[in-house]
Structure formats: structure tokens, C-alpha cells
Design a protein around this nucleic acid. Structure first.
Lengths: 237, 237
DNA sequence: AAAATATTTATTGTATACAAATTGTATTTT
DNA sequence: AAAATACAATTTGTATACAATAAATATTTT
């Protein structure tokens, strides 16, 4: 709390990221510069720089003279997501198994423990956040500047889709989470053993589980409805 | 030239992009805020916003309290590049053939003409730039937000690698360029015919040609030397 | 003279004031 | 009253002044 004073920009960056990933800030909703400036006791100048960075990473969208808003999730999101995810994620996992460094493996294990704890506590936000962190680390392990941009963009909506579709009441969903956690453990093992083939296979399995989770929530025919905030239409060229 | 006054930020963004792609600004070189502000008659505030955006897209790297520099090309660049490129590019081409809109196809054809013209005129910069534009359009055609970030990041270094390794004297290299141009034509045809399989295959062929072009320049054993500015070491976690 | 410390200079980061553009409201016109 | 215009309020964009940090130079100490 004491170094906040000289790192308010970084703090704001991190908090906004978390709030976007956990849907505290809804897809498509506006970001008020003056309001946020007040909230983080920061002037608009550094705040706008953070906006541009978040835009570059896919968290927000900027419109000329019209301010920033949280990146929207349209009816094409799910389709695009499951088209790109298996490929990118498989490649990243394969490279992670190839290139992971010991310190990173330790980090991954620690994060997995935190994930399990969140699961046990039943904290939805923490679960999404630590799951996100887990996969971010595998991205770092892969260590390929050309793969990471898409991978990290996928992780943003992976977290948001997970938050959107999870219902704690559903038994099958809870079981799926246990299965996901077991897959994380298997992933760690594969990476430790530098087993690229298993790692790639586990990546595929992991996404299939995600897909199943979503299909528990919506019927295939319903996949075309918007995911984000109510009735904001995505305008695209 | 007349609307420069109220869009100097956009102008600066475009010019910097071009200068980076054509190696007018060398990888690893510093960007002086005050100097650039003067050069583009722009204050540092909007200039720094552009930096952040360029950083998000992979053109430049920002260091806390140490200014911006052009993204470096290290000894791992080529390896990482040819690891990721075939996969991403293949997927993008396949989707481009699936989703391309008529207006985009027209745009692609026009760009290809400009590319051929640059080839004919022997303009290295224009060749790299129009080739870059050609592939950017295929990215737009693919229309998948999760694939584009990595694809566009690849295109940056594709242009820079091309600029680095091309020597006009070499006959084989000139022939390769003609072959590349012919591949572009074939790509256009495949996209027009919605022929995903051919499009994906052409993507692979296209990268293989790029790889050959580079291997004409450096022996495999030399692939480990830095590509960018002299003796700047990339520091990475 | 070499190393360590202090001082100066240059560069980067932030806040505030102002300009431009957009949005919302009131007025006028038909 | 509906549409169009003009006006006011809000929001976004830019410039400049100042603060904080890092780099360079000069000074002191050994």
C-alpha cells in the first residue's frame, strides 16, 4: 500500500485488467476518464496512456473522440474463439514443455495451488484469475513473441467466457472444474518431463472441456446471441 | 497535406510504422520524445500515446523511465518466426478464403498491382510496404480477432526480415521475388474461388519461399547472429 | 590516481489549463 | 407538433509547466 503513490499507473492497469477479466466491468461498457482519474487519484494524462496500452492488448477499444469502452463480446466471439484456441493453445503448450525454466515451473505449481484453493473456497473471481495466471505462465514458458499476442488475447476472453457461463448450482459444471484442475496437474507433469506430445494433447483436452462447459449452458442454436452487455451492437467494417 | 493539422497524431503513427517496417528506423534504436515532437510538430502528450499504441502492436518497446525504442531483432527472432509463421499464416489464409468480402478482394488485387509495380521499378521500400499491405488485407479477410494480433506481429518482422536479407545483385533472389508475386496471384485466385485448401497450401509455399530467400543470404550456422542494430543485447526475463 | 560521493544536466512522468469536438437541450421554422 | 437549427454542457484531445527519475559530470575522499 505504501508504494502506491509512485506507481498508481501500474496499480490502475492491474486493477482494470482484473475487473475486465472478472466481468466486474461489462463488455461494451464505457470508461469515464474523469471518473476513473478521480477513482485512482491520477490525472487524465497517464490514465489515457494506460487506455492505449490496454487497447493494444485487447482489453478495451478506443474510438476517436468518443472515449474508451471494454472490448465487446459479439455473437461471433465464441465461434472465432474455438476456431483459434485449440491451434494456438496447442502450439504454446508444446513450446512450454520444450522451453520451460525451473523458476517458471515453480511459479506454475504455486499458481495451481492458489487455483485449487479458490476452487475449494468457491470463489468465482479468484478461480478465473488464477486460472488465467496459470495459462499466462505457460505463455511465458513458450517464449515466442509471435505466438504470445494471440495467446494472451485468447486468455482474456477465456476468462470472460468462463465467468459468463459458469453456474455454481450445476453439478456437472462443478465436476468439470475438478477435471480442469486435474488437467492442470497433468500439464505441470508434462512440462516438467519435457513431454511435448503429451503437453499438446492436454491442451486439446483442456479446450474440449471448456467447450463442453459452455455447451452445458447454452444450446448450440443459442450460440448466436450476444454474450456481453445487453443489446450493444458490435459495429465492424 | 491539408488535413495534417488536425490529424498529426495519425500521420505520425503511419509514418513511424512505415519507417520501422522499412528499417529506416533500426531495430533497437532509441526514440527521442522531444526530437520527434518537434519533427511532427506535436506535443509530447499525444506522442507518448502513440508510443504506447505502437508498443501494444509490437513496433516498439517501452522501458519504465527509460523511453521507447524500436522492437529489437535478436538471435532468436528467425527461429521463433519460422516456428510460428507457417501455422498462423496457414490458418489466416484458410479463413481469408472462407470469409473474404468482394470489396476486400478488390483491395487485394489493387495492392498486388502496386506490389508488382514496385517490383518492376526496383523500389525496395515500396515492395516491402505493399507486400506488407497485401498480407494485412488477408488478415482483415480472415476476420478473427484472436488470430490477428499474432498475425500482424509476424507481418512486422516479415517486412523487416525481408528488408534485411534482400540483395538486388543476387539473381536467385530476384527470381524468388517473381515467384512470390506469382504466388500472390495464385492466392488471389484461391480466395476468389473460396478454395480453402489451396489457400492454406499457398500460405505454406509462400513461407517456404521466404525461408529459402533467407538461406540464400546466411548459412544455417550463421542464423544465430543478431539481425538488428549492432551489439544491442535483448534483455528478457 | 582510483573509487566513492555529491552535484549538475537531461530525460521521463504527471498535473493542469486550454482548445476542439461531440452530445444534449432549447429555440426557431415549417 | 415534427424537423431543423442554434445554443449550451459535457467530453475528448493537446500544449505547457512542473515534478521525479536517471544519466553524466564534477568533486571529494582514500
Amino acid at each position: 500500500m505504501k508504494e502506491d503513490a509512485r506507481n498508481r499507473k501500474g496499480v490502475m492497469y492491474e486493477i482494470l485488467k482484473k475487473e475486465i477479466l472478472t466481468l466486474v466491468r461489462r463488455p461494451g461498457s464505457d470508461l469515464d476518464e474523469t471518473q476513473l482519474a478521480e477513482e485512482f487519484s491520477l490525472s487524465r494524462t497517464p490514465l489515457r496512456e494506460v487506455f492505449r496500452q490496454l487497447a493494444g492488448e485487447g482489453y478495451v477499444e478506443l474510438r476517436e473522440n468518443r472515449g474508451a469502452r471494454i472490448s465487446d463480446m459479439s455473437h461471433t466471439t465464441l465461434r472465432d474463439f474455438f476456431l483459434a484456441a485449440p491451434m494456438i493453445y496447442g502450439a504454446v503448450m508444446r513450446l512450454a514443455a520444450r522451453n520451460a525454466k525451473p523458476a517458471q515451473i515453480d511459479d506454475l505449481k504455486a499458481t495451481q495451488e492458489l487455483f485449487k484453493d479458490a476452487l475449494h473456497r468457491g470463489s468465482n473471481e479468484d478461480r478465473a484469475l488464477f486460472n488465467n495466471r496459470f495459462h499466462e505462465i505457460t505463455g511465458d514458458m513458450a517464449d515466442n513473441v509471435y505466438l504470445l499476442p494471440s495467446f494472451n488475447r485468447l486468455l482474456i476472453d477465456h476468462a470472460r467466457i468462463g465467468m459468463t457461463f459458469y453456474q455454481p448450482q450445476d453439478n456437472q459444471m462443478a465436476e468439470n472444474l475438478t477435471a480442469a484442475s486435474a488437467q492442470h496437474d497433468a500439464i505441470i507433469t508434462a512440462i516438467e518431463n519435457r513431454d511435448e506430445v503429451s503437453a499438446a494433447q492436454l491442451a486439446t483436452d483442456h479446450w474440449n472441456l471448456s467447450r463442453n462447459q459452455i455447451e452445458l449452458f447454452v444450446m448450440p442454436s443459442q450460440l448466436d446471441i450476444p454474450l456481453g452487455s445487453p443489446s450493444t451492437k458490435a459495429e465492424r467494417g
